[in-house]
Design a binder for these strands. Sequence first.
DNA 1: GACACTACGTGAATAGTATTCACAATATGA
DNA 2: TCATATTGTGAATACTATTCACGTAGTGTC
Lengths: 235, 235
Amino acid sequence: MHPTRRERYRQQTIDEIKAIAMKQLVESGEAAVSLNGIAKEMAMSPGALYRYFDNRDDLLADLVVDAYNDLAEHLQAAATASDPTERLRAVAQGYREWALHSPNTYRLIFESVSGSGLTLAADRVVPAARRSMNVFLHAIAAAATITDLPVDDTLRDELTRWGNRAEHPELPVAVLYLGLTTWTRLHGLLSLEIGNHLAATGISADLLYGTEIDTLMRTIAPEPVLQAPLDSGAS
Amino acid sequence: MHPTRRERYRQQTIDEIKAIAMKQLVESGEAAVSLNGIAKEMAMSPGALYRYFDNRDDLLADLVVDAYNDLAEHLQAAATASDPTERLRAVAQGYREWALHSPNTYRLIFESVSGSGLTLAADRVVPAARRSMNVFLHAIAAAATITDLPVDDTLRDELTRWGNRAEHPELPVAVLYLGLTTWTRLHGLLSLEIGNHLAATGISADLLYGTEIDTLMRTIAPEPVLQAPLDSGAS
DNA sequence: GACACTACGTGAATAGTATTCACAATATGA
DNA sequence: TCATATTGTGAATACTATTCACGTAGTGTC
């Protein structure tokens, strides 16, 4: 039950490795995460790191999981307003805040090459990613005043299956669909803002994001919610 | 006027370098573009490549410009239908086709780190990127039946300035805004599809993309266009 | 035609990177 | 006390980009 002395030391070393790796990631991006650099900073030989991580990708997979969890917590923390509409707006803005606070971390989880270690670590990544999505879904469920949407029957089936698999079968298809599109649209803006692709237009990403949220709110809640919220948080 | 013998040989070498680099990019991603590998394939010493490109980033910047131009041509080629609505749909679908035909190329231009060489090469990249955007803008201008949108005054100003700078001041603000959001929304979907982030949901990216296009079309043209198109192509 | 200049390519050197392995030291549990 | 598992070292391997001194060969000029 109690972790042994060795296990505690081991965990401490793992934490230190990850902390330095995360620092490198935040400051200089994924490419700058260097095992040699970490070893130097810890006054170790580079080979010793392989006692704790199979390889570089394995370490990055850990950072991805941590990042997803951190995102979920940030979104959850943003969802404080009692008014469902305001709460959803706050979650959407929290998403951007999180992305801008560390663009390199955002890039790691959403724009890194899924070829090698990350696809293999899907069993750890997917649940962590689901936590963030759940915050969105519950915020939308509470704010939504519409009950249906013009989506194809096949898509409807797929959404239902997704809802069941993701352990919130109580959510209507419209909410699932809105959760998905809210995410993809906000991500589209953030991805381009972070990648500096909006800078050339001279258009303020802030305004654009806010306008996109307004548009989404009009779809989700054409009439503001009047009844008390049905749901208050994520799982 | 005539390129000298030397200049022709030089251009030929540059083209060969770029062709091999592009092959590496398409097959294995940006990280796999290797000067050593290119040199080996050309039976040259690695150092000789520096007679043609300042460094690796300089070569990648060239690939970015070529990719943007290729995208613009693909979009333009997709815009054949005479019906403005169908034409816009085809352009949007052409965007996805191009992205899926070489995800690594899409990632290079939209998800690579803009820190080093690419920001410096903005004077070559921006015009090439503008070509693609112009196809979208003209397709939207021809299909749009709405004349205004609920956008903030500041955003309206920025859009106007962008329109002037991008050399199509004839386009109404609503069209500029719709062009921008069409792009960011489709990119959001494509970015996540390519990154394998939709796979975990089990939802068909194809259906989702089509549904998003439907939604966009409803915004752009609540009533189908009846009059002849005002505009037929990009610059 | 000889000369000077420029461009091109080589091969070696530098300084990074990840990863593996034989070996030694050390801590743990019996 | 002893056998075992864990941790770390240092060297080796095989990559990567990049720089540089040097030689060769083609180009235009006098």
